[in-house]
């Protein structure tokens, strides 16, 4: 099973080709396929004008060490911002997503890519991601259910939910123990 994209709580066809940059490769010379592409930040920085002059949508992919504010001026021009998770236990991407949504006000597609699996979807979506490229070999259709693992939440996050103490007060129940 190859990687499948979840967007808008559905499994959809991914129209973007991903341009990867092997270590040490020159960003200026990476071949760009026809059609919509997602490129590494280094390629974007090196070839911004060229990418913008194409008639296709373009997205940028960040690694956990990239700084979101680098893209502050470009956000309106990007169709996708992708954040790479080298391992799902590397949680930097969650704070990066927060920065895009809450600090930079980015409203477009924020996509989690890399080691992205079902059991992280709930946290990812609360942190501001709205698209998830489910890792190869994992069932994206089945994963959809995990977007709704919790209805109750305590804290504010980049998904715009309020802390419990700003929401309507719940009824106090007779305690069971």
């Amino acid at each position: 099973m190859r990687s499948q994209l979840i967007r808008g709580h559905r499994v959809v066809e991914d129209e973007f080709a991903v341009v990867s940059l092997p270590e040490g490769a020159d960003p200026a010379s990476a071949p760009l396929p026809e059609g919509p592409v997602i490129v590494p930040l280094a390629v974007w920085s090196a070839r911004r004008e060229e990418l913008l002059s194409r008639e296709h949508a373009v997205g940028v992919q960040l690694s956990p060490t990239d700084v979101p504010s680098t893209l502050a001026e470009d956000l309106a021009r990007l169709a996708v911002v992708a954040v790479h998770f080298p391992k799902f236990a590397d949680g930097r991407g969650y704070s990066i997503a927060y920065q895009f949504r809450r600090r930079l006000g980015y409203r477009g597609e924020l996509r989690a890519v890399g080691d992205v699996q079902r059991d992280q979807l709930y946290y990812l979506s609360r942190s501001g991601f709205d698209a998830f490229l489910i890792k190869e070999g994992h069932d994206a259709q089945a994963a959809l259910a995990s977007l709704h693992d919790f209805n109750a939440t305590y804290q504010a996050a980049a998904d715009g939910r309020l802390p419990r103490f700003r929401a309507a007060p719940p009824a106090r129940e007779a305690a069971g123990g």
Binding site: A89, Y154, Q155
Partner: peptide, 14 residues
């Protein structure tokens, strides 16, 4: 405790 419980951003710290 409540705030930190299932905090989405801080479940995979270093």
């Amino acid at each position: 405790r409540q705030w930190s419980t299932l905090h989405p951003e801080f479940a995979y710290l270093p």
